[in-house]
């Protein structure tokens, strides 16, 4: 994880290392799923990735629980890992692009129509 070490501060690198250590202890399928979750969540992070830490933590916790219960990663995450990640990010309070576009559309329409009427 060179990217993280160069870009982020010490505390984040520590968090990241702790995540990786926890992930190492997971069964194979959960570890693979963890890799996928990281790939899908990274584009949502800001420059330092700080806003992702709690989300990654939660996702990892979910996988750990699944492993402890003897469930497969597939059973807890379903088929749609990208969708799951978007939901994760949405639930964490981050706005998806699409939501921003929606708001922009309605705002522009309202503004331009009111100018028309006035």
């Amino acid at each position: 994880m060179n990217f993280w070490e160069t870009v982020t501060g010490g505390d984040l690198t520590r968090d990241w290392k702790a995540f990786e250590a926890r992930a190492e202890a997971l069964p194979d399928d959960c570890r693979v799923a963890w890799g996928q979750i990281k790939v899908h969540l990274l584009p949502h992070g800001d420059f330092t990735g700080r806003n992702l830490t709690p989300i990654l933590d939660a996702a990892l916790g979910l996988l750990e629980e699944a492993a402890a219960e003897g469930q497969s990663a597939h059973e807890v995450l379903g088929d749609d890992i990208p969708g799951f990640c978007v939901a994760l990010v949405g639930g964490g309070g981050a706005r998806t692009h699409r939501d921003r576009w929606r708001e922009q559309l309605n705002r522009n329409v309202a503004r331009k129509l009111s100018r028309l009427g006035g």
Partner: peptide, 13 residues
């Protein structure tokens, strides 16, 4: 997304 998800799904199984 499907290309990403589809690829990783096969490795997941």
């Amino acid at each position: 997304q499907e290309s990403l998800g589809g690829k990783s799904r096969t490795t997941g199984k």
